[in-house]
Amino acid sequence: MPDLLNKPDLILDKLFSLKDQVAVVTGGSGVLGGAMARGLALAGARVVVLGRNEARAGAVVADISANGGESMAVVADVSDRSQLEIAKSAILNRWGQIDILVNSAGGNIPAATIAPDATFFEMPHAAFEQVVSLNLVGTLLPSQVFAQAMVERNHPHGCIVNISSMSAIRAISRVVGYSAAKAGIDNFTRWLAVELAQKYGAGLRVNAIAPGFFIGEQNRDLLLNTDGSLTVRGQKIIDHTPAGRFGEPDELLSTLIWLCSSGSSFVNGVVVPVDGGFSIYSGV
C-alpha cells in the first residue's frame, strides 16, 4: 500500500481492476443482474451471464461485446446442480478459471406473499418452500459448484458476492417467504466466509450486498402505478428512505467491483447495504 500511495495514478488499476478475471453472474439476464454483469465487464472481467432465458442472457452479452468486453451466455437453472456442473465445464473449457461468483438469481412468487385481504395462516407451505429454494438453495448450489473451481486451483483464490435484501434485516410486510430466504443468505454468507477462509486460505472471500429498493420486473406493479406515480406501498418506501428515491441499478456497481477486487482483500463475511439509508432510518 505505501508504494501505491506514492503513485496515485496506479491506485484504481491496482486496487479495483478485474482484468483477466472470470466472473459468473447468476440471474445475469435480470435488471440488477444484467447491470452487475455489464459493470464487471467494464472493470475488465470476462463475464459469464448465466440465466434460464437464452435470448435475454444473449442480449446482455451483446451489450457487453458492443462495449469492448468479453462475455458468454450460459443457460442453466440455479436450482439444478447437473445444469450448473455442465455450465462450469463450459466456462472452464473456454477460459480455464473462475475467479468471481455473483449470486444474483432469485426473486419472489405471489403465493408466498401475504395479500392485503389474506392472512399468514392461509399461505401454502409449498409456496414458502419454493421461494426459499429459489433464493437460498439457488445461492447454495452455485456456490458449491463454482467455488469448487476456485479452491482446486494451485493457489486457491476467488470471491463470492451474494445478493441479500432489506427484508433480511427489517420486517417488511407481506413478503414472508422472500424475507426468510434472504435472512438465510445473510447467515450463509457469514458461515461460508469462515468455512472457505479457514480451510483454503485468505484468498477465498464471501461477502454480500443488500440492495435497497430498485425498480425491477417483479416489484414494478407493487411500487408504481401505470402512469408512473407511486402506489401506497411505493410511497411508504420512499418516506422511509432518507435519499427520497429508488435506487438506480448502476449504483450497485462500485460496491460490487470493490468487493470483487483486491481493494477489499481484507474484507470478508460482510453484508453491505446500498439502500439510500433505508436500513438505518426509524421513520422518526
Rank of each mutant, 00 (worst) to 15 (best):
H157D: 14
P273D: 05
V267K: 09
L4F: 04
P242F: 01
A197E: 04
D239A: 14
R220S: 14
V270L: 03
A87N: 12
R38L: 04
I114D: 05
D117H: 07
V274K: 09
I215V: 11
F266W: 08
P2G: 05
S82Q: 14
L84Y: 02
N135F: 04
P156F: 00
T139N: 08
K182C: 00
N207T: 02
C260G: 02
V271T: 12
A55K: 15
A73T: 07
I100C: 03
T255E: 04
Q218G: 12
A90F: 06
M72C: 09
G138L: 00
F266L: 11
D13G: 15
D250F: 08
T113D: 08
N53G: 13
N108E: 13
N67F: 00
K19R: 13
I209H: 02
S262V: 15
A73N: 11
S79Q: 15
A111D: 09
I64D: 01
I237M: 03
S71D: 05
A37G: 14
L204K: 12
H240A: 05
V74L: 09
D239T: 07
E70C: 15
P249A: 05
I114N: 07
P242G: 07
K14A: 10
T255A: 14
I209C: 07
V74W: 00
E85H: 11
G277T: 10
G201E: 01
T231W: 01
S133D: 15
P156I: 03
G96H: 04
V194P: 09
G244N: 08
A41H: 02
V267E: 04
A149Y: 00
M166A: 10
I163S: 09
N268R: 13
L259T: 04
P249C: 03
A76C: 13
Y200E: 00
A112N: 10
F246Y: 06
S165P: 04
M72V: 10
S264T: 03
A126R: 15
L222Q: 15
A243Y: 03
G138V: 08
S254W: 10
G201H: 10
E129S: 15
L253Q: 10
V267W: 01
L40D: 02
K88S: 13
G44I: 01
A23V: 04
S89A: 15
L204C: 07
Y178A: 06
A180F: 00
S143V: 02
I280L: 12
V47K: 04
V25N: 03
T231R: 03
R174T: 04
G234I: 04
D9W: 01
A112Y: 00
V161N: 01
G263T: 05
S262K: 13
G96P: 10
S133A: 14
A171L: 12
A180E: 03
L259C: 06
H155C: 10
S79D: 15
S89Y: 05
I238V: 11
S71Y: 01
Q148D: 11
V175Y: 02
T119W: 03
L92T: 03
D227C: 12
A243D: 06
D250M: 09
L32Y: 01
N225C: 13
V284M: 12
D186E: 12
S89W: 08
G30P: 13
A55G: 13
N154F: 05
L224I: 06
V270Y: 00
A208S: 06
G34Q: 00
S229H: 08
